[in-house]
């Protein structure tokens, strides 16, 4: 499945882009962090989480239609 992926903060800076369209395979759907670490090895050395349709989540269920995925570096609000 092809999904729109958004990048924020440190991750966007490292990739030099704020979004892209990514094809995610069946294995990737079950472990999104590992999938994105495979594409972007620098992520293995950093702390980040994945949001699926604005909820922190590491997988996409087989039945779920996904609108948007985001890769989020550590939060620093406040």
């Amino acid at each position: 499945m092809k999904v729109e992926v958004k990048y924020y903060g440190y991750i966007a800076e490292q990739l030099n882009k704020s979004e892209s369209s990514v094809e995610i395979d069946e294995i990737g759907r079950n472990d999104l962090k590992a999938f994105f670490e495979g594409i972007h090895p620098f992520l293995k050395k950093t702390t980040f989480c994945v949001a699926v349709d604005k909820k922190v989540c590491n997988q996409i269920g087989p039945e779920l239609e996904v609108g948007q995925i985001a890769l989020l570096p550590p939060f620093a609000g406040g």
């Binding site: 924020y8 903060g9 440190y10 702390t47 949001a51 989020l72 550590p74 939060f75 620093a76 609000g77």
Partner: peptide, 21 residues
């Protein structure tokens, strides 16, 4: 803890570091 806000601390010489709660 929960809100996805990101912060770049910009230093006096315009170098920067990413902040983390």
């Amino acid at each position: 803890l929960r809100v996805p806000i990101f912060a770049k601390e910009i230093l006096e010489d315009n170098s920067f570091v990413w902040k983390e709660n």
